[in-house]
Computed example of a mutant assay.
Amino acid sequence: MAESLAASPSARSAARKRGPSLGDVAAHAGVSTQTVSRVANGLTNVEESTRQRVLASMQALGYRPNRAARALRSGRFRNIGVVMFTLSSYGNMRTLDAIAVSAATAGYAITVVPVERPTQQEVSVALSRLLEQAVDGIIVVIEAHIVDRADVELPSGLSVVVIDSTERSDYPQVDTDQAEGARQATQHLLDLGHRTVWHIAGPGDSYSAARREESWRRTLEEAGAPVPEVFRGDWSTAAGYRHGQEIAARPEITAVFAANDQMALGVLRALHEAGRRVPEDVSVVGFDDMAESDSFWPPLTTIHQEFEAIGRRALELLIAEIEARPEPVRSSVLHTRLVVRASTAPPPAGPAAPAAG
């Protein structure tokens, strides 16, 4: 090798004054500037031992690739934008984590713009902010009925993938089979012998909540079971607790399907405080399979969905669009799985009270 990988004080000082260049790294590593450029751009036609030597020289000199210059040469910024409503929900955080890890593996950075309220104005502002950040493509995770609106314009000429947000067919989409999961939850309770299943739905402007509610209703109708009134929640534990207090006061309710695990947790607390046993008096099913759902008391029967797989698949589709790779599947729907734990059982013995319609 031309010289030791330990940079001399004078070399480090000169690099700090003007910033280390490709030439500095090439001289330090004993390779050509073309080889350094290939490594900096993530190309694979470099021997692994040479790549590691170049990376070590970059670190020793404090070299950082000039993203703007690289974008001028390649036409790409290697940066992906993510527009996401709420960073606090379990599903969104798991999805975002998978997007970030997959992007880093593929040599891309991500820029996240959270949307505080899923309104037309906020979504449009978020998209504009991302365009100012020089991104190669955007992943949209806004599950409310916003992306379908005519006054929300997704960037033209830019690759876009939508997660659980739209019925539009002009962009690749990735989603969980929400209807399948709701059917599994409802049918499980019917198969245990419950006369009907009550539902705590998500917000009225949510696509996933609407799909789950519609499938719950259809499953009951196909089984010839009464369809009770819907409790309307907002995904929070507080909403589940509030509706759980009413459920606890109504002895005719023996089975509850909550549209997510957090609302199911609120129901469990309300039932416990009211002295109604789960599952002996009331069975409860959630949706999401949160990491903590097996530690609820009792452990929660729920619907498992692959948030990480959704994030990875969205990133794969977006990069395929950015890099113009052959990608025959433009959209993906991932299956759900019923996870049976201790919060469900057959209804209590004795005559069941009629369900309210």
Results as ranks from 00 to 15, higher is better:
residue 112 V to K: 02
residue 92 N to P: 08
residue 194 H to W: 02
residue 190 L to Q: 05
residue 95 T to V: 09
residue 173 Q to C: 14
residue 185 A to G: 03
residue 142 I to D: 00
residue 195 R to N: 09
residue 103 A to L: 04
residue 98 A to V: 06
residue 165 S to I: 01
residue 87 L to Q: 11
residue 130 L to M: 05
residue 105 T to D: 14
residue 162 V to G: 02
residue 120 Q to E: 13
residue 167 E to S: 15
residue 138 I to W: 01
residue 138 I to A: 02
residue 104 A to T: 13
residue 93 M to K: 05
residue 141 V to H: 10
residue 165 S to P: 02
residue 110 I to M: 13
residue 187 Q to L: 11
residue 171 Y to V: 14
residue 168 R to H: 12
residue 182 A to S: 12
residue 126 A to L: 08
residue 118 P to D: 06
residue 176 T to E: 05
residue 143 E to N: 13
residue 119 T to G: 04
residue 139 I to C: 07
residue 93 M to P: 03
residue 107 G to N: 09
residue 190 L to D: 03
residue 135 V to H: 01
residue 101 V to N: 04
residue 189 L to R: 04
residue 126 A to D: 05
residue 179 A to S: 12
residue 152 V to Q: 05
residue 134 A to V: 04
residue 88 S to D: 08
residue 153 E to Q: 15
residue 87 L to T: 13
residue 117 R to V: 10
residue 166 T to R: 03
residue 108 Y to Q: 07
residue 110 I to E: 07
residue 90 Y to H: 13
residue 135 V to G: 01
residue 137 G to L: 02
residue 120 Q to D: 15
residue 102 S to G: 12
residue 86 T to N: 14
residue 108 Y to M: 09
residue 113 V to G: 06
residue 141 V to W: 01
residue 136 D to H: 04
residue 93 M to N: 07
residue 151 D to K: 10
residue 181 G to N: 05
residue 125 V to Q: 13
residue 115 V to F: 02
residue 88 S to K: 08
